[in-house]
Simulated assay, not measured.
Amino acid sequence: MADVMERISVGGVEIAPGDIAAEAQNHPSETPEDAWIRSAEALVVRRLLLDEADRLDIAATDLADAKGHKLAPDDARIEALLEQEVKTPSADEATAQRFYRQHQHRFSSPTIVEAEHILFAASPDDEFAYSLAIGDARGAIRKIQAEPDLFGKLARQLSSCPSKEQGGNLGQIGPGQTVEPFEQALFALNEGELCDQPVKSRFGVHVIRAGRRVEGETLPFEAVRQKIVDYLEEASFRKAVSQYLSILASRTEVEGVAFEITDGPLVQ
Rank of each mutant, 00 (worst) to 15 (best):
196 D>W: 06
37 I>P: 01
245 L>C: 04
229 V>D: 02
57 D>Y: 01
119 L>G: 02
86 V>Y: 01
144 I>Q: 02
124 P>M: 11
204 G>F: 07
123 S>R: 14
8 I>C: 01
213 R>T: 13
133 A>V: 12
141 I>Q: 08
230 D>N: 15
149 D>S: 15
163 S>V: 04
11 G>K: 13
26 N>K: 06
194 L>K: 05
12 G>A: 03
249 A>V: 07
222 E>V: 09
230 D>G: 05
227 K>G: 02
29 S>G: 10
263 D>I: 04
22 A>C: 00
246 S>T: 12
52 E>Q: 08
80 A>G: 01
36 W>G: 00
106 R>D: 15
122 A>V: 14
108 S>A: 14
53 A>Y: 06
118 I>W: 05
178 T>A: 08
236 S>Y: 03
257 V>E: 06
7 R>N: 03
77 R>P: 10
112 I>Q: 04
216 G>C: 06
117 H>C: 07
76 A>I: 04
206 H>W: 10
254 V>A: 15
52 E>D: 12
56 L>G: 02
205 V>L: 12
189 L>Y: 04
80 A>E: 13
238 R>P: 01
26 N>W: 11
9 S>K: 11
265 P>T: 05
11 G>D: 11
163 S>N: 13
98 R>I: 07
233 E>W: 00
125 D>V: 09
139 G>E: 14
38 R>I: 04
75 D>N: 05
205 V>N: 13
110 P>C: 01
261 I>E: 01
199 V>Y: 08
68 G>N: 02
261 I>Y: 00
39 S>T: 02
33 E>F: 04
62 D>T: 10
239 K>F: 07
120 F>T: 04
237 F>A: 06
14 E>I: 07
97 Q>H: 08
32 P>V: 10
242 S>T: 01
212 R>N: 09
59 A>T: 11
1 M>G: 13
75 D>Y: 00
35 A>Q: 07
13 V>E: 14
118 I>R: 06
24 A>M: 15
102 Q>P: 01
142 R>C: 12
146 A>S: 13
129 A>F: 00
